[in-house]
């Protein structure tokens, strides 16, 4: 397996409080890596460090390195980095524009597509990829605020696909959704694995056991255990992991 991302001695701080404590691990190409752990264990901070969304937070500081295909992401331009690493947030964030514009917004900003016919094609492709095309094809020009939460979240995934990144980060994408929408989003994510490398943060242990190739357990900013998902859940090596997945603490 090819290592897509290598994390090397990463420490992150908010107001001098250590949030991530000397992380060292790698993410493989075309895998789904689950990250589970209780609140305040640094899962979201890690994702936001990966595509440098925390650069805008003045209380945030970090040291260490992250390599994407052997290039240090902290030396790249943030726009280029985010084109390669897309991120989906916990709550669906449709931009205040139509469904169609939501999808072509980023490609236009990045200067990837200009012709109308090509835009139409991409909109159709990405909406089909997230199983949303049949539900919204008749109202592409309606505001994205009007569709349901689950549809919005899938639209947000479609929007990321439109810039065709290499890695997609999911930050508890189903935490605000009902079970049926959740199933649809999960189905979408498993389908995406064929083309993309996925980092999937979730609070839901069962969900992690359903979809990931490997699972990492974060606790208080440290990685307690990282292993193949099956082994991770059937025979965890660390006692803390076993306690957490069986619901004895956390």
């Amino acid at each position: 397996m090819v290592e897509k991302i290598i994390v090397e001695n990463l420490n992150c701080y908010y107001n001098k409080n250590c949030i991530l404590d000397s992380l060292n691990f790698s993410i493989l190409k075309n895998e789904i890596l689950n990250i589970i752990g209780p609140a305040n264990s640094g899962k979201t901070t890690f994702l936001r460090t990966l595509n440098r969304m925390n650069d805008y937070n003045t209380y945030y500081s970090r040291n260490g390195n992250i390599y994407l295909d052997k290039l240090n992401i902290f030396n790249m331009s943030v726009e280029k980095l985010r084109r390669r690493i897309g991120m989906l947030f916990a709550m669906p964030i449709p931009l205040p524009m139509s469904i169609y514009e939501n999808i072509v917004f980023a490609p236009k900003c990045l200067g990837l597509i200009f012709e109308k016919s090509k835009q139409d094609y991409i909109v159709e492709c990405v909406l089909k990829a997230v199983f949303l095309w049949n539900e919204v094809k008749d109202r592409l020009n309606k505001s994205a605020m009007e569709i349901s939460g689950g549809q919005q979240q899938r639209l947000c995934i479609a929007r990321i696909l439109a810039i065709n990144p290499e890695i997609i980060l999911f930050d508890e994408p189903c935490s605000g959704l009902d079970p049926i929408s959740t199933a649809k989003v999960e189905e979408t994510i498993i389908e995406l694995k064929k083309k993309y490398t996925i980092v999937f943060v979730t609070n839901n242990v069962k969900q992690a056991s359903r979809i990931g190739d490997r699972t990492a357990f974060f606790l208080m900013g440290k990685i307690i255990e990282i292993n193949k998902t099956e082994e991770f859940f059937i025979s965890p090596k660390q006692k803390k992991t076993a306690d957490y997945i069986s619901g004895r603490f956390g």
Binding site: M53, R82, G86, M91, I93, P96, F105, A106, L110
Partner: peptide, 25 residues
């Protein structure tokens, strides 16, 4: 803030975010 974050996470620059998302909203 989430609108700006959403646009920025897609790789839009600060100026593009202001012009196309913030001003519009």
């Amino acid at each position: 803030w989430k609108y700006k974050e959403g646009a920025i996470a897609l790789g839009a620059t600060k100026w593009q975010t202001i012009r196309k998302v913030v001003l519009k909203a």
